[in-house]
């Protein structure tokens, strides 16, 4: 069962790699003309193209790239001649750090709010939590970020931009990245909270919950002990989806807080036609999505043993 899922995931990644390669071929212009920009002349363009190996046919370039990527060697950036692994390494670390930071803030908040609002359905607390979360998700990320900068950075409480260097300690790092993490928390909390609430409320109508209630159990115990375990599958899925989003979709927050993550690298690489970097980053993003969903599948299977056996 689990092995089939893993095999499917790998097959999916292979297809994605084909799509990634094909899509970057469709971009207008090429790296050589981007590198030289307005100063390009036919002569220098030709010389640079030759140097960068842009004249090889597409299938040859695809094969060279894929075989390298499988051994962890993404080659060198066409634009800077630096190994892509170096280029991505630190930034991947930054991105994962920020994603985990935001997840550490948002998952407990979302689950707590979701459970409480299911428990006190239609109460003022439920309405306020829903309105707040939906309000936060409805505002564009950059707007939330600017509001936080206005309130929390311009008043001197937190820095308005993130400057990480090798000597930064963990404490400083948590302090400096608090605003971006908070922004992301506000953006992703509503989705997880609403899903938690809906899944639990859905179960509250089941006969076995009715039974528990008739036994005279306290509402909190009913929710935590009886409803929540059965609601885990959809919650795990939505958490995985949001984690994947936190890794792949935070370029706007990165730009506002000048955070050196993968998103900015991807944008720069696309606009400069640094195809090798675009492909590597896209592959990492795809792996993050497929991998996290795979983990979610496995976890929800484990949370519901019935799924282990075919009917």
């Amino acid at each position: 069962m689990i092995l089939t899922r893993v095999a499917l995931g790998i097959g999916l990644l292979f297809v994605v790699s084909l799509v990634i390669f094909w899509a970057t071929e469709l971009l207008p212009g090429d790296l050589a003309s981007q590198l030289l920009g307005q100063s390009a002349t036919p002569e220098t363009l030709a010389a640079l193209r030759e140097q960068l190996g842009l004249n090889d046919p597409a299938p040859v370039r695809y094969w060279n790239w894929l075989s390298g990527a499988l051994t962890g060697d993404f080659g060198v950036s066409l634009a800077t001649n630096r190994p892509i692994a170096d280029l991505i390494g630190a930034r991947l670390g930054n991105t994962v750090f920020l994603a985990l930071y935001a997840a550490a803030l948002s998952v407990p908040i979302a689950l707590t709010l979701g459970i409480l609002s299911a428990l006190w359905r239609n109460s003022i607390f439920d309405r306020a939590a829903n309105a707040g979360a939906l309000g936060a998700i409805s505002l564009p990320e950059f707007f939330v970020a600017y509001i936080l900068v206005l309130w929390l950075a311009q008043t001197g409480l937190f820095p308005s931009m993130v400057r990480i260097n090798p000597t930064t300690t963990m404490g400083e790092r948590l302090y400096m990245t608090f605003l971006p993490a908070l922004t992301l928390t506000l953006v992703v909390t509503a989705h997880m909270m609403r899903m938690t609430r809906a899944a639990i409320i859905n179960l509250m109508a089941s006969p076995y919950i009715e039974m528990a209630r008739l036994k005279g159990l306290s509402p909190l115990r009913i929710v935590l002990r009886h409803a929540l375990p059965n609601a885990l599958a959809p919650i795990i899925n939505v958490v995985a989806l949001n984690l994947a989003y936190l890794i792949t979709g935070v370029v706007v927050v990165e730009v506002v807080f000048v955070y050196p993550g993968l998103g900015q690298l991807m944008v720069d690489a696309v606009s400069n036609r640094d195809i090798a970097v675009v492909q590597a980053v896209a592959l990492i993003f795809a792996t993050a999505y497929v991998g996290l969903n795979l983990i979610a599948d496995v976890l929800s299977t484990l949370s519901n043993p019935r799924l282990m056996h075919r009917r």
Binding site: Y146, V149, A153, Q154, S160, M161, R163, V256, F257, V258
Partner: peptide, 11 residues
Amino acid sequence: AARLNALITGE
């Protein structure tokens, strides 16, 4: 906007 903020906050 981030650039302007960085200047205002003394970064």
